[in-house]
Design a protein around this nucleic acid. Sequence first.
RNA 1: GGUCUGUUGGUGAAGUGGUUUAACACACCGCCCUCUCAAGGCGGCAUACACGGGUUCAAAUCCCGUACAGACUACCA
Length: 546
Amino acid sequence: MDRKEYADFLIKTTHDYNYYLDKYKKRELKEGAMVTRLAPSPTGMVHLGSLYSGFIDKVMASQSNGICYLRIEDTDTKRTVENGVNTIIDSLNKFGITFDEGVAIDGEKGEYGPYVQSKREDIYKAFAKKLIIEDKAYPCFCTKEDEEHNKEIQTKNKEQIGYYGRWAKCRKLTMEDVIEKVNNGDKYIIRLKSRGNPNHKIKFKDCIIGKMEIPQNNLDIPIIKSDGLPTYHFAHAVDDSLMGTTHVIRGEEWLPSLDKHIDLFESLGFRIPKYAHISTLMVDDNGTRRKISKRKDPWADVNYFHKQGIPNEALVLYMATLTNSNFEAWQNSNKDKSYKDFEFTFNKMSKGGTMYDYDKIINISKNFISTLKAEEVYKRALKYTREYDREMYELLVKYKDYSIGIFNIEREKRKPRKDIASFNDIKNQTWYMYDELFKPQKYEWGKITNSDMIKKIFSEYMDVYDSNDDQDEWFKKMKKVAESLGFAPEMKLYRENPDNYKGSIADFSTVLRVGLTSKSMTPDLYEIMKLFGREKMEKRIVKIFN
RNA sequence: GGUCUGUUGGUGAAGUGGUUUAACACACCGCCCUCUCAAGGCGGCAUACACGGGUUCAAAUCCCGUACAGACUACCA
């Protein structure tokens, strides 16, 4: 039996590797164009880290006029969730991450498919066969227990852990041994026959981290599992070569397995792509940093932000600031431009762990929402509450124009209000504007608490209030009434001689504000009165004392 | 244990051997604006380059060691 027949005996494929080498042509790209890919597992959720990496994949490809494609890594059949793929595509889409090629809702796009790894089984096997023919891979019959056993001894002796050298029992099996075992029905996997020597260092340059030196891989790592599917490492080498990925952008947790990947690319005779290892998203957990975790951190699932009512755009902007910290400054001086106009670079990306910062997201979200028109805020609030707050939703529907008016207070001007951070916040911000929700626990009176005085202020004020007044006129009238009741009409006057007055114009207006809304802190009072109108104001005044 | 990576004020983070007396942002404090809040303007704050050696005329920046932190160490990805 020659090696070709031997390989055919061990692995059955419908095509041979030359067929695939021929089928997937080299991409023709413009100078500098990057081909990137996002390669998630279909576990049914999009991890914040995937969004981060997807953002970078997308932005690097599109700003270099390259290609960004989606590949699904479902070789771990245990973790695959039904409909997981569509969930991923949908979620990413919401964040503006779309793909030029690869898996899509309505099938697949592109010449390099299939883009789902479980459908590429024949391809991986064909290349595993190539390695067997070239004596760069071999079947292994060892059990999990064998390996556990090795590990125990290795740990005890403080030797390198893994399947290599004298521990690699099956490496020494002759062809005849193997044939006998296979005919016997013994299960086996395929391992790489590593030729590396850990005393030799590989010099390597990562796009983000820069120069590195790592020992050569000497582990005979599994490449085909007993279920016939490839391991991540092998699939990565085969797919990213065949699909023509120029830049492999992935989390830094992959850095330690880079030696294995280089070994695989070289064994397969493939060119090694460029790598960019992005920093892990970390969280501060009682003073220590740790990787964000799906189990401990609810926000690890990007869906969390949707539930919180954080606009997708805000999360995207947050991703942009994480990617390149100089983005924020650029955005501030280019307010009308999109993040797509900013040139992101690898060498501005963070090397260490990146801290996840919810306050920062809130801040970005506030700023983003403040730039929206009132109608847009209304539209989004409607969409959000429809799903998460039925009561609020119905009020928004019932009082459409009134609600838009509320959102329009101090908006659409050069320095707009920034008080809405998320759409689950709007009820807290505006409840007192709706009679249905207006059930104050207490009135936050300030300096003036005497009920006779409060009554007097309202009765005098309502005599002069005219809803047609402009803001200047409105304020003048308020000052006039305040003065006639013994309040200082200007803050300056009050500060100079506080003893001469019952209070300042601020104290006076606080009475009006609290009487109408029960709250001492609200947006512009003029606008609120205008939205209320006389009738509603009077109803509110009656309500104060009963 | 081994391998790899990182460590700059309270926090995040610029910085790629010499205009660095180390940006900027957030936080905090003060003042201004002001009918409250938000926003905005001005100013202040901080004993910041983990530690110890070395290379150099010159080091946050290059090299070596130590400490600390993190990632990885599966027939998971």
